[in-house]
Amino acid sequence: MNALWVVIAVLLGVASLLGTARLLLGPSILDRALSVDVLLASALTGLGAYAAFNRDPTILPTLLVLSLLGFVGSISISKFVARRPEEHARPEDTVYPATTEQGESRE
């Protein structure tokens, strides 16, 4: 059974590394926000595995706080991107011109 705990830890570690790679590479800010979400899911899974390994329920409120934090973070990043004017988009944020809305009110 100990081997399975090690396998869980290794999987989560590799997942965090790959998520960090996408965080550094990501072409647009939304990709980065998405990879932060995945990193946060890995952190939640890791904390849960810790709690299960030690049979220790005292860190369960931390899971609640982290999931709240992830929701608020990704919503606020999305809203920030929506409000940023198009002409201020940096050149590496590839904007495909077919989809920029015309005749529609932006919220």
Partner: peptide, 14 residues
């Protein structure tokens, strides 16, 4: 959160 991110991605042409 996924809905809002996808919507913003579509509207800003990503």
């Amino acid at each position: 959160a996924g809905h809002i991110a996808a919507r913003v991605g579509y509207r800003t042409g990503r």
